[in-house]
């Protein structure tokens, strides 16, 4: 199998590695970079456990070749908390009991982060559709919706304060 050089920025750090062309982004993140917060739940792009942000957009990293991310910027769950402080989404999931087994949670938070970056004040329906690419088997989703609402409110309030 031929090897290629890939360079990408993950959570603000630039990495260069020699990889097989067929290596999936999720395996690159989990095994080469040892960032195991990004999970694998299926092989058909249905479950969303492997969701990360690539140049600000959600991708399911189990269906993206690592080579595709060459030169791009990736954000994973490990990059969400800043300087030891939880992101409002992480706070929201904790406060509202938006997680149980925790397996879908990183992907869910990454999708929610993308949603709020495009739509800071989503309706309940918009949140549900915004997360419809992420499966959760434990929570029944209501508390995930509440968690995203909590974060949206907190982020809006913080933005107003900054303004």
């Amino acid at each position: 199998m031929s090897k290629h050089t890939v360079t990408m920025t993950v959570n603000g750090t630039k990495y260069t590695r020699e990889i097989e062309s067929r290596l999936l982004l999720v395996h690159f993140i989990r095994e080469d970079l040892e960032l195991t917060g990004t999970h694998i739940g299926c092989d058909t792009t249905n479950c969303g456990a492997c969701t990360v942000l690539m140049d600000g957009f959600t991708v399911k990293s189990c269906t993206v070749f690592a080579m595709t991310a060459n030169g791009k910027s990736i954000e994973t769950i490990e990059g969400v908390a800043q300087n030891g402080a939880l992101h409002p989404l992480q706070e929201g999931f904790w406060e509202k009991h938006g997680l149980q087994c925790g397996y879908c949670t990183p992907g869910m938070i990454m999708s929610a982060k993308h949603l709020l970056s495009n739509n800071p004040n989503p309706t309940e329906d918009e949140i549900r559709w915004g997360l419809s690419g992420n499966l959760c088997r434990c929570t029944g989703y209501n508390k995930i919706v509440e968690a995203v609402q909590y974060a949206a409110e907190k982020m809006s309030a913080e933005q107003e304060q900054d303004a």
Partner: peptide, 21 residues
């Protein structure tokens, strides 16, 4: 009570079977 186990899961620091190397 908010769950005590949550901080590790929220930050991608859970330790699931495929994370063991």
């Amino acid at each position: 009570m908010k769950r005590k186990e949550d901080p590790r899961f929220l930050q991608g620091k859970g330790n699931y079977i495929d994370d063991i190397k």
